[in-house]
Write a protein that binds this DNA or RNA. Structure first.
Length: 508
RNA sequence: GGGCGCGUAGCUCAAUGGCAGAGCAGUGGCCUUUUAAGCCAUUUGUUGAGGGUUCGAGUCCCCCCGCGCUCACCA
């Protein structure tokens, strides 16, 4: 049973009084004719011809200013706020008193009347009738604060507690309009990505989230169990292997936007479930994917923000193609002074890093590719502020990518960076089943003492590939991260409606 | 998982180890064009939970819970 606060008990009592007086606090019907913005727009155009605009509005009470025989209130609906005007000589003293006594901030009401403009010029509904649509029991967090008489100290209080904002996103949304705006823009982003890919003849598909084997990325999976099949299942960590199976089936361009699950740490840029976009494009290679990527992201930026240039913290990011391109070996050499091509084994590379940078070294037990990754993260990544493609990756951290002809240690792979963090990952996909099988096996032996990096060998995927897979370019992008960049949010929690949080204890 | 920080009224925040407070919200009243309405009066607390030190703990110590930052992890 819920424990009610003093404020809630007062509202519950009002609810009972309303019922006793014959008013249903949770009626089944609403009769809205206009949103607040529509009513205002209609009034503005009718005003010139002195025409009357009648409207029935519905929304939450956000402010109420009772002034004796007249009252002003603001309600807020999905499109914005609008003022209501009540006059007791028209509605009757009892009804206005009822409104002021029984209705609280946060209640949903509907009000009918005629639009007019007040003395101060605000377009307002002159209310002729109203009813309660839903009583609010728990007060919304106050969204305004303090008035100091001397006029110097002004404090506004909004719901700011990051924990309450995330746990009770409903309250955050109800009270902070800019949060609603963030999620509208996020929806615009996803729609733009879809439109872009659809217009480029990609087919949107859906592949299993529950998988008997996981793969396509290096991450720890969530494990669950199917009772009837009597087997464990994994929540997918990527879409890759399933989408590439579709290329075997002659679907030449496919994409999926959906949720990935990784059983790992939580941070400002990591949530255990996150939205991923992947596409696979037959007969293309990573250079073509690069071009499509910069077009797609700049298109999305324009749709979401109206411009290809967006502000992110102190930076102005310009997503307009072409993006800067940095070859990995060159980039590492320039930022760390180490030429990875000179050190062909992990031992040699480790020594070189140790000599050059002393205490800043990777784990000496790492594979060579991991050490290169370390150099990227430590020295190169922080310099990649403007949208940049970092390309040509070490083969041993890219088991699904095709080698560069004549350079067996390097693969045709790139990652897109902006504001110093990774937003996408793509490569010319490996389509040689014999090579692929060997890579899986190498992968296993490279990381024998690293349980987390071990990956199950996907026999069915190899079988598919043996039927023949067209050469293709593949692409993956964290949609949440792109949202952060485009919306200038510095935590992934700001672009997720319900970010992962520890279970809340509700007591007895 | 490690380190650092935070947790006080519905919200935003105060309070040298010495009477737990303010504004907003709420409640009662006045007020027929207000809008951060105003004026008068007034209520609200297991100071995250538990233990300890002390004459006395919101404050110091221990432990637990939650959140934040950060490191690790994260092809």
């Amino acid at each position: 049973m819920a424990e009610y606060t003093a404020l809630e008990k007062i509202r519950l009592q009002k609810l009972e009084e309303l019922r006793a007086e014959g008013f249903e606090p949770y009626p089944t019907r609403a009769e809205r004719t206009h949103t607040s913005t529509l009513a205002i727009a209609e009034f503005e155009s009718a005003e010139k011809d002195a025409k009357e605009v009648k409207a029935t509005l519905a929304g939450r009470i956000r402010a109420n200013r009772a002034m004796g025989k007249v009252s002003f209130a603001h309600i807020e609906d999905g499109s914005g706020k609008i003022q209501l005007f009540f006059r007791s000589n028209e509605l009757g003293k009892d009804r206005v008193d009822l409104f002021n006594r029984m209705f609280d901030l946060g209640d949903f009401i509907q009000a009918s009347g005629v639009m007019f403009r007040t003395k101060t010029g605000e377009i307002t509904l002159h209310v002729h009738d109203f009813k309660l649509l839903a009583k609010s029991i728990t007060p919304l967090p106050a969204d305004k604060d303090v008035t100091q008489d001397d006029g110097t100290v002004v404090r506004y209080a909004a719901l700011e507690s990051p924990e309450i904002r995330a746990r009770q996103r409903y309250a955050d949304l109800a009270v902070n309009p800019e949060v609603r705006e963030t999620f509208r823009k996020r929806a615009t982003l996803i729609k733009a990505l879809r439109t872009f890919l659809d217009d480029h003849d990609f087919l949107e598909v859906e592949t299993p989230i529950l998988q008997p084997l996981y793969g396509g990325a290096a991450a720890r999976p969530f494990v669950t169990h199917h009772n009837e099949l009597e087997q464990d299942m994994y929540l997918r960590i990527s879409f890759e292997l399933y989408l590439k199976r579709l290329l075997v089936g002659n679907l030449e361009r496919v994409y999926e936007i959906g949720r990935d699950f990784r059983n790992e740490g939580v941070s400002f840029k990591h949530n255990p479930e996150f939205t991923q976009l992947e596409f696979y494009w037959a007969y293309a290679n990573y250079l073509q994917v690069m071009e499509l990527t910069e077009q797609m992201v700049s298109y999305a930026a324009e749709k979401v923000t109206g411009s290809t240039t967006v502000k992110f913290g102190e930076h102005e990011l310009d997503f307009k193609p072409p993006w800067k391109r940095v070859e990995m070996r060159t980039g590492i050499l320039e930022t760390s002074g180490i030429d990875i091509a000179e050190y062909k084994t992990a031992e040699e590379l480790f020594k070189a890093i140790k000599i050059k940078h002393g205490n800043k070294t990777p784990d000496p037990k790492s594979a060579r590719g991991k050490m290169i990754d370390f150099l990227v993260g430590e020295f190169l990544e922080p310099t990649l502020i403007q949208p940049t493609f970092l390309y040509n990756y070490p083969r041993d951290i890219s088991p699904l990518a095709k080698s560069i002809p004549g350079d067996p240690l390097t693969v045709e792979r790139f990652e897109g960076y902006a504001a110093g963090f990774e937003i996408c990952n793509a490569f010319t996909e490996l389509n040689d089943p014999i090579d692929q099988e060997q890579r899986f096996i190498d992968m296993g032996s490279d990381y024998t003492d690293d349980e987390e990096e071990k990956h199950p060998l996907d026999e069915d995927y190899l079988r598919a590939m043996r039927y023949g897979m067209p050469p293709n370019g593949g692409f993956g992008m964290g949609v949440d991260r792109l949202s952060m960049l485009l919306l200038n949010k510095h935590s992934i929690r700001e672009v997720l409606l319900f970010p992962a949080l520890r279970k809340e204890e509700f007591g007895e």
